[in-house]
Design a binder for these strands. Structure first.
Lengths: 328, 328
DNA sequence: CTGAAAGCGCTAACAC
DNA sequence: GTGTTAGCGCTTTCAG
């Protein structure tokens, strides 16, 4: 303890926490002693005393994905601005692990948790009723008893589809996971349909292409299948960029030219989209805005400055980035 | 406290920690009470008592990069296997922030730190002499007073270059950052040269292309410049995949066909490389192996089962993944 | 402006 | 097998 060094026990605390009532000379003394002894606060002790850990948890399927790594980077940066650390939990998109993460923070490991669900379903809403701060980020569980930051699913999908229509597409594939799920697939589908309807285009079930999983490989495979099957289509709206990257690859394999024969648009505007060949048009959600909001909402809960019963639903902003894959 | 609930103060602790000396019935009692009261351990208190936090820090430039997100995912997974949590610090590749991260863990926020330096230089080796566990991952600072997990820079670069030579390349560009730095650029350059020498090929300074920064945009720009400048080359070895992705794009812009006219190979085998058009050949380092080793080394330090003075230098494994960009 | 007392919730060491 | 005694290093409260 710097106490022995300087002169006081408690005063050290005051100095460390920049309390006003400390004489300049005393402060100087203490600081000097701290430097000399290489003193560092013991955060564990402070945590115990304060009942806070200064760390929030972030549960995502994996951090090794263009989208989630972007999200994680944004969240870490936002938390950093509030002097909060972020501890990452990789759930592997498993429902089990997601539920675990929810109860983990009950161990007071974290002051609160930001959960991006991928395995949990709408049926698990009740499980979100925990007695510690939680914010849900993303679209897998909605209307739960917690604050929620959502993607602009409907409007952005509508805008992306409209863009394809404006570029002359008439037979637009909707490429996604299961359309009846409450998730990116299910929530973006209505936007796609609305855009078709807005333009007076028919909705052909053959164009609704649903996949088990939605990463690059799946996109590439399905694109090749579609090309081989004789399905007629001149546009593809993919619910995420990974899928779209795969589609570009699959279409190339099938000898179909993008954007001349088929136009492709993705969702997320992930790093690298603009360097693909052709560069990928994509919906660009306001990731930083959403991450910042998620952290703000969580802090509100942690500091109990939010109504206990009222839960905020925040929908992020977006823009459509037009690149070569839809004709520049 | 569950004490009031059950019967004991300490016994609860024993139950929680699976100590052997607890009667079955007692254990059952306690567990029942814990469940009933919704009791959770207070980790802060445990930390204070044990002098451990159960969390390690990981400092990387940013997590939003194909490479670092892969690394982070591997580390989190490896730590998880040892029941350790990982808190991520984004340094933005700034030397300042990296040095900060080094002293942060002195605050006992973490039991130890894995640092991937990008801003610090060889001159900062001394700064690694801290009194808490640190493992350096990557190639920016070498031979320091700490354990070090390194990329197989020399051998892998040599293998990648040799592969280009075997595919018939004679004028191979080395595309990197500053070659005299101790980093991925500087450490991979000798491997490139060695491969040329092995094959009896001359080393032409005009082919050593050095950049300020090494991401996709830089790769694309430089590729266009090289194409426009009339520089003759038939192969490009890029020190990372981001650069290589940019190069593919830049060459396409210049109307140069890959792999027919120029072959390209990258380094890292990042997610998505195989779906590019053309798919990208790349050095595939054993990321998981390196991450696992880094965590193991750190744990050795945390548990003080390692020699205090002897520091391990571990070099990861690798393979060369051959794809279309070098002729399949 | 500074200090003394008490306690945050847990665990190690030892006694019963 | 179980309980007692201390103490981890800080902060809050209240006196001086």
């Amino acid at each position: 303890m710097a106490k022995a060094a300087g002169v006081s026990p408690m005063t050290v605390s005051n100095v460390i926490n920049d309390h006003p009532n400390v004489r300049r000379s005393t402060r100087a003394n203490v600081l000097e002693a701290m430097a000399r002894l290489g003193y560092r606060v013991n955060v564990a002790a402070r945590n115990l005393s304060k009942g806070r850990t200064g760390t929030i948890g972030l549960a995502v399927p994996t951090v090794h994905s263009p989208y989630y790594s972007l999200l994680a980077a944004s969240i870490i940066a936002a938390a950093e601005r509030h002097s909060l650390r972020v501890s990452i939990e990789q759930t592997g998109a498993s429902r089990e692990n997601e539920l675990d993460a929810l109860s983990l923070s009950r161990n007071r490991l974290y002051d609160g948790l930001i959960l991006t669900a991928a395995g949990m379903g709408q049926a698990d809403v009740e499980r979100l009723k925990v007695d510690h701060p939680v914010v849900i980020l993303g679209d897998r569980v909605i209307g739960g008893p917690v604050d929620h930051v959502a993607m602009p699913n409907f409007e952005a999908s509508r805008a992306a589809t409209r863009h394809l229509i404006e570029r002359g597409c008439r037979r637009i594939v909707f490429l996604s996971g299961a359309v009846e799920e409450v998730d990116t697939s299910g929530l973006r589908f209505p936007g796609y349909q609305q855009a078709l309807e807005d333009a007076g285009l028919p909705s052909d079930p053959a164009l609704i292409q649903q996949l088990e999983r939605t990463d690059m490989r799946d996109g590439a495979e399905r694109a090749r299948e579609m090309a081989g099957s004789g399905l007629e289509f001149d546009g593809v709206f993919c619910v995420n960029d990974s899928l779209a990257m795969g589609v570009l690859r699959g279409l190339a394999d099938a000898g179909i030219r993008v954007p001349d024969e088929v136009k492709v648009i993705g969702f997320d505007n992930v790093a690298g989209s603009e360097f693909l060949i052709p560069s990928l048009s994509s919906v660009d959600p306001d990731h930083d805005g959403m991450a910042g909001r998620a952290v703000d909402l969580l802090i509100r809960r942690i500091e109990q400055t939010a109504p206990a019963t009222d839960h905020e639903e925040f929908v992020g902003d977006f823009s459509v980035v037009i690149r070569e894959s839809t004709g520049g």
